[in-house]
Amino acid sequence: MTAEDDARIGLRERKKRQTRLALSREAIRLTVERGWQDVTVDDIAAAADVSPRTFRNYFAGKAEAIAASHLERALRIAEELRARPADEPLWDAIGNAVQAQFAPAPDDRQPRDEGWIDGLRLMLAEPAVQGEVLKANAIAQDELAKAIAERTGTDVTHDLYPQLVAAVVGAGSATAVTHWLREDPHGSALPLLRQAFARIAAGLPTP
């Protein structure tokens, strides 16, 4: 395979990833705005300017589409960790990798009024969405464990450490975001994420 072939495959995979994310974002937006029962696959496909058949090439249903944004963010944490400086302490690198993926995007103009927040909470409480998020978490944890194993020189299959750290990262991130949604979803989740990973890095000392 030539370098040109590699480049074409890389471009194709990036485009697929972009399409998945576009469909996921529209699925989230429509579900938050209208409610779970009032959004169809056809609605999501039309909003993303693709055909329903294209949607089904990527997702089995709208719950999987919604969870895809969560999976994409989690996979990017592993990618960011691999790109962090080799001499950066592990937990600093992990904390920075997580925070980088929760920073608001420049084009993120999603309204954060009470209706949007209530819709987001209802969407995340939907059993089908929760099931797909659990599946996404398992995939993301495995990928993050591989990145941690590479960084620490451990074996992702036989050593407990990389899987344990990946599980802690997932739990820490989820706890901070859940607290944010409950307490102050109008602002950014970043301060809570910083606090969570600072405490984890310090060994969770008793307050």
Rank of each mutant, 00 (worst) to 15 (best):
R109H: 15
R76V: 03
E150S: 13
Q18A: 15
I9M: 11
A202E: 09
I139L: 14
D155E: 05
A105H: 13
K62Q: 13
A83Q: 03
D184N: 15
V133R: 10
V39A: 11
E143S: 13
T54N: 10
Q101W: 00
P52Y: 06
M123Y: 09
D142Y: 13
A174W: 11
I9Q: 12
W116C: 14
P85Q: 02
W36L: 06
G35P: 01
P89K: 08
S173M: 11
I139N: 06
A171G: 04
A105C: 07
Y58W: 10
I139F: 11
F197Q: 03
A100R: 12
P185E: 15
S51D: 12
D155V: 04
N96M: 03
R109Y: 11
S69A: 13
Q101Y: 03
N57F: 11
R109F: 09
G131N: 07
A171V: 04
Q130F: 08
T2A: 09
H186G: 15
R151P: 01
L71K: 06
R76H: 06
R20F: 06
I44G: 04
D92E: 05
W91Q: 04
W116Q: 15
N96A: 14
A67Q: 01
E4Y: 09
L120H: 14
A149R: 00
E150A: 12
F59D: 00
T152E: 01
G61T: 05
A166F: 03
A3D: 12
A140N: 00
A100H: 05
G170R: 07
L81I: 00
A83E: 05
R194W: 05
N137E: 13
V129M: 13
R17I: 03
L23N: 04
R73P: 03
A167H: 09
S24I: 10
L190F: 03
I28L: 07
I117D: 04
L124H: 06
E126T: 14
V50W: 08
D159N: 13
A63W: 04
R84E: 00
V39S: 01
F59V: 03
A86V: 02
R182W: 06
D6G: 11
A174F: 10
D118T: 15
E132Y: 02
R112T: 15
A196P: 05
V133P: 05
E26S: 11
F59K: 03
R14S: 04
A97W: 00
D108Q: 02
D108H: 02
Y161D: 09
A196Y: 01
L192R: 12
D159Q: 07
R12M: 13
R84Q: 04
A63S: 06
R199H: 10
Q141Y: 00
G131T: 08
L144D: 01
I139G: 07
R121H: 14
L90H: 06
